[in-house]
Design a binder for these strands. Sequence first.
DNA 1: TACGTGACGCCGT
DNA 2: CACGGCGCCACGT
Length: 97
Amino acid sequence: MDEAAHERIRAAVAAIPAGTTSTYGAVAAEAGLPGRARLVGRVLREDGHDLPWHRVLRADGTCAPHVAQEQAARLRAEGILVEGGRLPKAFRSRREP
DNA sequence: TACGTGACGCCGT
DNA sequence: CACGGCGCCACGT
């Protein structure tokens, strides 16, 4: 099993600074698994309960379909504005201007 | 063992 | 800008 990969993915997600966001693909790359965005989604589904999974969005800035509602609420709680289930371009890049 | 599915991503139309 | 198709890999049947 890719337990090591899971560990890295969890670490990458945990490393996302509060008030910023990242993407599945970025997290995968960060974990040394480029192209394994789907794996990131799987890991978050299985072991993401203790992680800031709400800071992980799709590459286009939209929220994950299954949890969009709660994710948007949590992001707003972090000070991130979400509109129409989508993240404004200004915030798209998990980096501050 | 093979097939279908999915917290995704990129390219073409 | 919206929609559809293909690629990717781990997992359940």
